[in-house]
Design a protein around this nucleic acid. Structure first.
Lengths: 127, 127
DNA sequence: CTATAATATACCTATTTTAGTATATACTGT
DNA sequence: ACAGTATATACTAAAATAGGTATATTATAG
């Protein structure tokens, strides 16, 4: 994986937000859509781009596609996510807010259906 | 300066090479041209882009324009240059080779005209 | 004032990226 | 087999980026 490919990914704020969110754990497309507030097509395309270059992995769970960061996380991505989360800039703050939103969304999901706790994207009741 | 602006800069291999070279100290356009082997227009444009967003500074010295990294170097850029120099990938190796080429070029310049040692772009004999 | 060197800008074209709409696919429940 | 949900892909128009040629600018040397 070329460094410039990774940079092109994180140069797009939406893609960066997705990567940051997935760094906290797998999420399905609909959750990403919800948190970032983008149309379905856009989310799907961005995910496809990053999966293509090997930054993301996906597996199907029922009708959901669950995306996650390809492991081990590429060092270059690691370094940048870590940096941005401790820095102070508008985009960085957004990343932090996203993690909060992520936590809230998951709490809400697990409350609504206590039977799908760890796997955010367990079948059915979650979305 | 937005993070995404910086990423867009370093997502371009040529711009990344320029930033890496300048991290070693100021250089004038012609030296960058020589080391990276790009046409004058291209060099000038790339430099203009990065100066525009505040990543680079420039001052004139005779007919030369001497470019340098804006100080203090932005943390995000710092982190990435440091990472890439110690990593092992095709683009990273290129950055290392560039630093060698830089050193050689400067040696050659200072040999040809021992009167312009520290300032790589001292007037006249250097280019 | 003229010629020349180094660099910047204008302008045009080709290419790539983005964004949106519509449609297709994959799976689930009935 | 049918309807519905989640996601992906095709297609198209618009916007941004890159690359090249020609020309302009700035400064120096004679």
């Amino acid at each position: 994986m070329e460094a410039s490919e990774i940079y092109k990914c994180i140069a797009d704020p939406q893609r960066l937000r997705i990567l940051n969110l997935l760094d906290g754990g797998s999420l399905c497309v609909c959750h990403l859509q919800t948190i970032i507030d983008i149309p379905q097509v856009k989310a799907s395309k961005q995910l496809a781009i990053m999966k293509q270059i090997g930054l993301l992995e996906a597996h199907r769970q029922g009708t959901w596609m669950v995306y996650s960061l390809a492991q081990p996380v590429h060092g270059l991505l690691r370094v940048n996510l870590d940096y941005l989360l401790q820095a102070d800039c508008s985009e960085c703050n957004q990343l932090q807010r996203d993690l909060v939103a992520r936590k809230q969304l998951i709490q809400q999901i697990t409350q609504d259906s206590p039977d799908c706790p760890t796997a955010v994207c367990a079948p059915q009741p979650c979305c």
